[in-house]
Nucleic acid binder design. Structure first.
Length: 889
RNA sequence: GGGCGAUUAGCUCAGCUGGUCAGAGCGCCACGUUUACACCGUGGAAGUCAGAGGUUCGAACCCUCUAUCGCCCACCA
C-alpha cells in the first residue's frame, strides 16, 4: 500500500482510476470495515436500505452511499464501533416481474414452468445480482461490513419473517378475511394501499335510470363513472334525510339488463349534493359501496375474474375486459333507453405502482395486519421525541399517515417471496401457524396439511430488517450489541412503505425503536428536474460517472448539492466542479510533499505535532484550522452535510491554498528555522484537513494522506480531529493584511500596472499596531508585489504626494507612488466613487445610531457594530477628501 | 378536498435561532505563467431575495394573503 503512494510519486493531476484502484481492497483486507472489536467502544450503527436485486445501481444509490458512508467513516474515526450493515432485497412483485419479462422473451409464462422451477429461475437471476450490487458499492467506496451482507430471502431473515407472523397471528394482530382490496389484474395479485398510485384521468359521469319496481311512472337516476359495475349492483342508496327519495326507501328497483330486483336503502355516506343524490351500490367493487353494503346487509356480487375480465355474473358481457365491458354496457343501456345523461368527469383512478395497470377494487380473501395496536406506540414515539426526523417536517407526514392507517393487506398471489407460514389441515380444517420452514402435520390432529399458496408483501420482511439482519430471532451477540441502530438514512418516498413499518415492528418485536433518527434524502433528478427513469433514458449511471470523474467527485457533488429532504438536479458540471476541487487539494498536497522531502516534519502518535511557530500567518492558519475542525464537527452532528462539505472546500481552497500556501512561499526562501516552521505548519494543517475530508472523499484523501507525513496505517482509522483554542488576535491581524493585499491588487489591476512589476509602498498603521503589520511584512510585500526594500511600515498619518494612490483597508492605509502609471483623472474618479460609497455608509450608520429605539432596544453588540462602522466611514471620508484635494479634485 | 416543499446573480444552490452594503460554485469580462494546480491564479461585472400587505428599532428570514412550479395524502359515486 504505502509503496503505491510515495510522497514524490503523486502524479501531476488527480487521476481517479489510478487512485481508487486497489485502495478499497486494501482497506477491506486490513479489516477496517468491520466494527472495532472493543467492548468499551460505543456502537454506531446504520442498517443499509437493501437495494432491490433487480437491476443496476443508479445515482440515487450513490447518494445514499455518500451519506451513510460519510456518517459511518466519521463515527469510526471518532472511535465508535461503527457498523454499516449491507443487504439486498428480493423485491417481491418487482423481482417476479423482471423474471417474467425475461420468460416472455422465451415465449413462456411462469405457469409453464410451475412454481418450483419458476422460483429456481428467479434465484438464478437474483443471485449474481447481489454480487453485482456489492461490486458497484465497492466502486463507490462504501465501507460496509461485507461479512454481514444480508439478503431478505436468506434462511435467518426468513425465519424472522415466520416468527413475526406467528407472533402477530397468536396475538390476533394478523387475521385472514374477505375484504375489499386492490387487485392488479396484470400482476394477478392483491396489493396494499401503498402500492396503488392514484392518478387523475379524464372520464365520464353517466346518469343511469333504474325503474322503480311496481311503479311504472317512477325511476331513480344514479350517477356513476363506472357503468359496467352496475352488473354487480345490489342496491341503490340515498341519504336518509333526502326528501326527494324518502318515500322510496325500502322499495325496490329493477336493475336494467340483468333485471334483478334490488332494494333502495338509506345511508349517511351518500352526499345529497353530488349528482342526483342517489348512488348505485356495488359492494364487491367499490370501497364506499363495500361499507354501505356491510351496514345494510347487502349481498356482494363479484363480477370479475382475476385477470380483470367480466365473469359469468356479467351474463352477455362475460369475458370482456373492463373498458370493453364499459362500452358494451353503455351501448346496451343506451339502446334500452336507460341513459339520462353523460358529462365529462375527471376522477382519480388507482394504478398498480409496479406495472401501471388500472387496479380493480374487489372482494377477496386475504391476510391482513391489524394496525391500530401497532400504530399507537409508533405514534407515541414520534410525539414524545424519541424518534426524530431530519428534516423535521417529515414528522408531520409520518404522523398523519400513522394516525389514519388502515389494516395492511400482506398476502400476495405471487410465487416469489416468503411463503405465508400457514398450513391448512385436510382433516380437521384447522390452521397451523409455524416459524418452521416446513410443517408435515396438523398441530391439532396430526392430519395432512397444505401450505397457504400466497407469499408476503416484500415490505413485511423489509420491516424486520433492523433486527432480522442481526440474527434475530436468535439472541445473538450482534443483536445484543448493535440493536437498536442509530440512524435510518433513506429516501422520503419510502417513509411509509419501509420506515414506518420498521418502527412499529421494532417496537412490537424488540420493545425498542429500531433507530432514533430518520434522515431522509431527496430524489436525484436530471439536469432539467425530471425524475430519472429507464424509459425516459435520462438515467445517469454511477459507474460511468465514477469511471470519468471518480467516486469521490460523484460523492462530493451529491453531498454538497442539496440538503435533507430536498430533491436535487444533478448536472455533470457539478461533478466536474467536485473533481476540480479534489484536483486542487491534490496539487496542494503535491506542493507540500516537495517541502516535506527537504524539510523533516516532527511526528508523534497522532501525526504531525502541533506547530508552535510564532509567525503571524502560521498562527492564523492554525487558528483557522481549529475553527474549521469545530465547525465541521458541529455541522455533521446536525446532519448538515452540505454545509460541512462547502465549508471544507472554502477553507482548503480559499484559505489554505490561496493565502497560506502563497504566503508560505516567502518564508520557504528564508532561514532553516523558517522552513521548518512552514513545513510543520503545513504538514499539520494538511494532515488534519485530509482527515476532515476523508468521510466525504475516502479514496483521494487516503492517497494524499499516505503521501504526506502521518502516523498510523490509514486515514480511515486515524482519529477524528479535535479543535484546540483559536488565536483570535492572529486571525484579526492577518485578516487586515489580506484585506490590504486585496486592495493593492485591485488598484494595480485597475491602474493597469503590469502584473510582474514590483512597486513601492508606504503602509501606515495606527500607532501601536505597526508591529502586527511588521510581523507579516514579507508576506504582505510578496503577495501585493511590493519590492521588499521599497516597503515602509510606520505609524502616524499617511503622507502622500500628488501622484500617489492611497488605499485604505480597515485601519491600514497604503500609499502607492504610482505617478506616471496612473491617470490623474481616473484616480480622481476612483476616489470620488469611493468617497460616495463612504458617505453612503456614514449615512446608513448615522441613521441607525440616530434612531433612539435602535439604541434602546438593540443589543449592545449590534449597536457597537454600527458605531465602528460610523467611525470607519468617517476616517475613510477624511482620508479620501484629503486625497481628492491633493490630486486636484 | 387536505397537507408539504420550492420561488435568492444567466444556471445550480447556501443563507443556522431576524442584526454590517445578500454568499458560493459554474458561466461571463479583463489580465496573467510567480517553488503545486489552466481541472489554475489575480481583479471585476452581475441580485426590486416571486408579488402585496403586516409585526419589529431592524425582515431574504416571523405573520397574513396572492401567484407560479413540484410532491404527498384522500372512498365524493
Amino acid at each position: 500500500m504505502t509503496d503505491l503512494l510515495k510522497a514524490t510519486e503523486l502524479p501531476p493531476a488527480f487521476d481517479p482510476a489510478s487512485v481508487e484502484a486497489g485502495l478499497y481492497n486494501w482497506w477491506d483486507s486490513q479489516g477496517y470495515f468491520a466494527p472495532i472489536d472493543d467492548p468499551e467502544a460505543e456502537p454506531f450503527v446504520i442498517i443499509m436500505p437493501p437495494p432491490n436485486v433487480t437491476g443496476e445501481l443508479h445515482v440515487g444509490h450513490a447518494l445514499f452511499v455518500a451519506l451513510q458512508d460519510l456518517m459511518i467513516r466519521w463515527r469510526r474515526m471518532q472511535g465508535y464501533s461503527a457498523l454499516w450493515l449491507p443487504g439486498a432485497d428480493h423485491a417481491g412483485i418487482a423481482g417476479q416481474w423482471v423474471v417474467e419479462k425475461i420468460l416472455a422473451t422465451e415465449g413462456l409464462t411462469r405457469h409453464d414452468l410451475g412454481r418450483e422451477r419458476f422460483a429456481q429461475r428467479v434465484w438464478e437471476y437474483m443471485d449474481p445480482m447481489r454480487w453485482r450490487i456489492r461490486e458497484q458499492m465497492m466502486i463507490l467506496g462504501a465501507s460496509c461490513d461485507w461479512s454481514r451482507l444480508a439478503f431478505t430471502m436468506d434462511p435467518q431473515p426468513s425465519r424472522a419473517v415466520r416468527k413475526v407472523f406467528k407472533h402477530l397471528y397468536d396475538k390476533g394482530l394478523i387475521y385472514r378475511g374477505s375484504r375489499l382490496i386492490s387487485w392488479c389484474p396484470r400482476c394477478m395479485t392483491a396489493l396494499s394501499d401503498l402500492e396503488v398510485v392514484h392518478k387523475d384521468v379524464p372520464g365520464h359521469l353517466w346518469q343511469l335510470a333504474y325503474p322503480v319496481a311496481g311503479d311504472p311512472d317512477r325511476e331513480i337516476i344514479v350517477a356513476t363513472t363506472r357503468p359496467e359495475t352496475m352488473l354487480g349492483d345490489t342496491a341503490v342508496a340515498v341519504h336518509p334525510g333526502d326528501a326527494r327519495y324518502s318515500d322510496l326507501i325500502g322499495k325496490q328497483v329493477r336493475l336494467p339488463i340483468t333485471n334483478r330486483l334490488i332494494p333502495i336503502v338509506a345511508d349517511d355516506a351518500v352526499d345529497m349534493a353530488f349528482g342526483t343524490g342517489a348512488v348505485k351500490v356495488t359492494p364487491a367493487h367499490d370501497p364506499n359501496d363495500f361499507e354501505i353494503g356491510r351496514r345494510n346487509n347487502l349481498p356482494a356480487i363479484n363480477i370479475m375474474n382475476p385477470n380483470g375480465t367480466i365473469n359469468a355474473e356479467g351474463g352477455p358481457f362475460e369475458g370482456m375486459t373492463v373498458p370493453a365491458a364499459r362500452d358494451a354496457v353503455v351501448n346496451r343501456l343506451q339502446q334500452d333507453g336507460f341513459i339520462r345523461g353523460i358529462t365529462e368527469h375527471s376522477h382519480p383512478v388507482g394504478h398498480c405502482d409496479r406495472c401501471g395497470t388500472v387496479v380493480e377494487p374487489l372482494i377477496s380473501e386475504q391476510w391482513f395486519v391489524k394496525m391500530d395496536d401497532l400504530a399507537a406506540p409508533a405514534i407515541a414515539a414520534a410525539k414524545d421525541g424519541s424518534l426524530t426526523f431530519v428534516p423535521d417536517r417529515f414528522k408531520g407526514v409520518y404522523l398523519n399517515w400513522m394516525e389514519n392507517i388502515h389494516d395492511w393487506c400482506i398476502s400476495r398471489q405471487l410465487w416469489w417471496g416468503h411463503r405465508i407460514p400457514v398450513w391448512y389441515c385436510q382433516d380437521c380444517g384447522k390452521l397451523t401457524v409455524s416459524e418452521e420452514e416446513t410443517v408435515d402435520a396438523c398441530s391439532y390432529c396430526g392430519g395432512p396439511v397444505i401450505q397457504d399458496e400466497d407469499v408476503l408483501d416484500t415490505w413485511f420482511s423489509s420491516g424486520l430488517w433492523p433486527f432480522s439482519t442481526l440474527g434475530w430471532p436468535d439472541q445473538t451477540e450482534d443483536l445484543e450489541r448493535y440493536y437498536p441502530s442509530d440512524v435510518m438514512e433513506t429516501g422520503y418516498e419510502i417513509l411509509f412503505f419501509w420506515v414506518a413499518r420498521m418502527v412499529f415492528f421494532g417496537l412490537e418485536m424488540m420493545g425498542e425503536l429500531p433507530f432514533h433518527t430518520v434522515y431522509l434524502h431527496g430524489t436525484v433528478r436530471d439536469a432539467v428536474g425530471a425524475k430519472m427513469s429507464k424509459t425516459k433514458g435520462n438515467v445517469l449511471d454511477p459507474t460511468e460517472l465514477t469511471a470519468t470523474y471518480g467516486a469521490d467527485a460523484l460523492r462530493y457533488a451529491l453531498l454538497t448539492q442539496s440538503g435533507p429532504g430536498q430533491d436535487s438536479k444533478l448536472h455533470v458540471g457539478q461533478i466536474e466542479a467536485a473533481r476540480n476541487f479534489i484536483n486542487k487539494v491534490w496539487n496542494a498536497t503535491r506542493f507540500a510533499t516537495r517541502i516535506f522531502d527537504e524539510t523533516p516534519v516532527e511526528l508523534d502518535a497522532d501525526g504531525p505535532i502541533s506547530p508552535d511557530s510564532d509567525a503571524l500567518v502560521d498562527r492564523w492558519i492554525v487558528s483557522r484550522t481549529n475553527a474549521v475542525i469545530a465547525e465541521t464537527n458541529d455541522l455533521l452532528e446536525k446532519f448538515a452535510f452540505l454545509e460541512a462539505g462547502r465549508g471544507l472546500r472554502d477553507f482548503i481552497w480559499s484559505e489554505l491554498c490561496d493565502w497560506y500556501i502563497e504566503a508560505a512561499k516567502v518564508r520557504l526562501r528564508g532561514t532553516e528555522v523558517e522552513r521548518r516552521q512552514v513545513a510543520q505548519t503545513l504538514a499539520w494543517v494538511l494532515e488534519r484537513s485530509l482527515r476532515l475530508l476523508h468521510p466525504m472523499m475516502p479514496f483521494a484523501s487516503e492517497a494524499m494522506w499516505q503521501a504526506i507525513p502521518h502516523s498510523g496505517e490509514s486515514v480511515m482509522v486515524a482519529r477524528w480531529p479535535r479543535p484546540a483554542e483559536r488565536d483570535l488576535e492572529a486571525e484579526r491581524d492577518w485578516d487586515r493584511i489580506m484585506e490590504l493585499v486585496t486592495r493593492v491588487r485591485n488598484i494595480r489591476s485597475e491602474s493597469n500596472v503590469e502584473p510582474g512589476r514590483w512597486i513601492t509602498a508606504a503602509v501606515y498603521a495606527p500607532d501601536g499596531r505597526t508591529a502586527s503589520v511588521e510581523a507579516a511584512r514579507r508576506e504582505l510585500a510578496s503577495l501585493a508585489r511590493i519590492a521588499d526594500d521599497q516597503l515602509t511600515i510606520s505609524g502616524g498619518d499617511p503622507v502622500a504626494e500628488q501622484g500617489d494612490v492611497v488605499v485604505a483597508a480597515g485601519d491600514l492605509v497604503a500609499v502607492l507612488p504610482l505617478s506616471g502609471l496612473v491617470d490623474l483623472a481616473a484616480e480622481r474618479e476612483r476616489l470620488s466613487k469611493e468617497l460616495e460609497e463612504a458617505v453612503a455608509e456614514r449615512g446608513r450608520a448615522e441613521a441607525q445610531l440616530g434612531n433612539e429605539s435602535f439604541i434602546a432596544r438593540a443589543p449592545d453588540k449590534v449597536v457597537q457594530v454600527q458605531r465602528d462602522r460610523l467611525a470607519g466611514a468617517l476616517e475613510r471620508i477624511a482620508l479620501l477628501e484629503r486625497r481628492l484635494t491633493e490630486v486636484g479634485g
